[in-house]
């Protein structure tokens, strides 16, 4: 089984539009959305949800005011400044439970923390595993891992040989979790200084975890000089550039019409198809 993870470092480069187009072009695959923090792929794939699962995050603590003697030990011990004035700020609590174990009066108690949901859905383009992290929740890396696990189980069970994953932006915990063990990280970038800066960091990250990376330059014609600079950087870092896509309003129009950009009438369709062919070759499909 092969997995391709589409990432971008910087947000808004067209990662999800490219992923959705791959989902249309591929065969015998499972689609996953690992951008659990601000998931968008479902908007393009119109999923019919078949199965909903609760996702429990790290527990939080609560103080039982009746038992609390006000000694303040919890406040002193908490490294996250989550306890103050006899109350716990659940947004700062990381669930280490040090206060719970330490409290001499037994006044702290751990409480379950419903941190989100994940879904198994049916779409026109194949089965789709996606998730929604609760607003203001932590541990999205864990939810990403859960989504990928479910996708892999499903692919194994149904004999599908490819997983197409829409990855999260950035280089932190959710991205690391989305990259571990994938066969190819396709970085969708654009020729802007910000995206170029982020590209280098995300390629470093892939190298750090030993993940093979490739690059696709979207909106390449908005700054051809920068585009050449991106290609030079990739050459220096020994990362193949698998495709260039010109700036095309079809991307935005497709997002408005809630369909993959590949379903639009535009020359960009051919560019995406040839990009997909290169990706398949890179994956050995």
């Amino acid at each position: 089984m092969k997995e391709i993870t589409v990432i971008s470092g910087k947000g808004g480069t067209g990662k999800t539009s490219v992923t959705a187009s791959f989902a249309v072009l591929a065969e015998n695959h499972v689609i996953t959305d690992c951008d659990v923090d601000a998931a968008n792929l479902h908007l393009l794939l119109a999923p019919e949800i078949m199965e909903v699962k609760k996702y429990w995050g790290m527990p939080r603590v609560e103080i039982n005011a009746a038992k609390c003697t006000g000694c303040g030990l919890c406040e002193t011990l908490c490294r996250y400044d989550a306890v103050s004035g006899g109350a716990v700020d659940k947004l700062l609590c990381e669930g280490c439970l040090v206060c719970y174990h330490a409290c001499p009066a037994g006044a702290m108690r751990p409480v379950e923390n419903l941190a989100g949901e994940w879904y198994l859905s049916r779409t026109r383009y194949g089965p789709f595993v996606h998730a929604r992290l609760g607003v203001a929740q932590d541990n999205s890396g864990k939810l990403v891992a859960r989504v990928r696990q479910r996708a892999r189980d499903l692919a194994e069970k149904t004999g599908r040989n490819l997983i197409i994953t829409d990855g999260p932006p950035g280089i932190g915990c959710p991205v690391i979790s989305a990259l571990g063990g994938t066969d190819l990280a396709l970085v969708v970038t654009e020729p802007t200084l910000s995206a170029m800066h982020d590209l280098v960091r995300v390629l470093d990250l892939a190298a750090h975890f030993g993940v093979r990376a490739a690059v696709c330059i979207n909106k390449w014609d908005i700054n051809p000089d920068n585009c050449r600079a991106v290609e030079d950087t990739c050459r220096d870092m020994n990362v193949p550039v698998l495709g260039r896509i010109p700036y095309d309003p079809a991307f935005m129009a497709a997002a408005l019409e809630k369909k993959p950009v590949i379903k639009m009438t535009s020359t960009v369709v051919n560019d995406i198809i040839s990009l997909w062919d290169c990706v398949k070759k890179e994956l050995g499909l």
């Binding site: 947000g11 923090d37 601000a38 947004l91 992290l133 607003v135 203001a136 929740q137 932590d138 541990n139 999205s140 999260p168 932006p169 950035g170 932190g172 959710p174």
Partner: peptide, 10 residues
């Protein structure tokens, strides 16, 4: 701020 709605944004 970073994008998203999870811990680093909070």
């Amino acid at each position: 701020a970073p994008p998203g709605t999870s811990c680093p944004v909070i």
